[in-house]
Design a protein around this nucleic acid. Structure first.
Lengths: 155, 155
DNA sequence: TATTGTTATACTCTATAACTATA
DNA sequence: TATAGTTATAGAGTATAACAATA
């Protein structure tokens, strides 16, 4: 036993446990762990479900609009879209009214994939598996939206 | 004007805006942007302040204990510690009672750095600059701690 | 044999800027 | 000239496993 016993067993954090930046990083790590545990074997990467989900809801959405909506940079979106196209989950179309742009749609396989995985992403069987009861999870979501500067519905 | 007007202006999100995984990623992006805006010129990286802060509060802390506390992997912690040592912000010591381990302490320059930047990391002049009033920020922190599985003080 | 930390490697993610084709 | 998307490149973060020193 030495002079460092207390430090080695329970280091002081001095308010770090109240820092939103620190806490958000820890929680993000937890999300990624849970995500890979559930979706890793399906070769699904974080972000890809969200991208496919928004295309599913907005067939023909412009690639740039999708990128801005999900805060994904253009260069990274290109790579993700090409990857999903190679997997035959989405299709790209160059519209005649603006041949610079790209419009995205789910393929039949993509729609099928979303239908299969939807409950695992949302819903009670969600990959999250966190200890928050529904009311607190909803309040956490509300505060995160406000933190991020998202407009509130029904405000 | 075309059939995609609605989609291009306000794509439907279909509940994605309630997903904690999605929201945590967006909020994390915001944190990093704010962090680099404030600390980027000081060559400080996310994680480095937290590491130095915990060493400041727990001088002589073992490197592995520090890594476990802050959820940083051992290999990455080695690199961060070497970098901070090169910058003369921390010092490494091999203790006689266990010569496998490494104990970390802030140098005078490290202590001075923490003293200078403390208010910019915590406090009201924090780099965060989010729109949450104090009570909601505190509630957000509480929910994030619970989400992450942190033990509550005074529970 | 197990543990602490280090090194090497590879892969992903991200940021930036130059580039193309279209407008 | 400006815009949408692509490509190329480099850097930073992360994961993994092999490794050395010590217990």
């Amino acid at each position: 036993m030495g002079v460092h016993d207390q430090i080695d067993q329970q280091p002081a954090l001095g308010g770090l446990e109240d820092s939103l930046g620190f806490l958000l990083r820890i929680c993000q790590l937890r999300v990624y762990e849970a995500f890979y545990e559930r979706f890793g074997e399906d070769e699904l990467r974080p972000g890809e479900f969200s991208v496919m989900w928004v295309i599913h809801l907005n067939p023909g959405i412009r690639q740039g609009v999708l990128a801005a909506t999900l805060r994904i940079k253009a260069a990274q979106m290109t790579k993700m879209v090409r990857r999903l196209e190679e997997q035959d989950k989405i299709s790209r179309e160059i519209p005649d009214d603006d041949r610079r742009s790209v419009r995205l749609t789910l393929t039949a396989m993509g729609e099928s994939f979303i239908a299969d995985q939807q409950a695992a992403f949302f819903g009670n069987e969600s990959y999250h598996n966190h200890p928050l009861p529904p009311a607190e999870a909803a309040e956490l979501a509300r505060l995160l939206r406000k933190y991020a500067g998202f407009a509130e519905a029904g405000a």
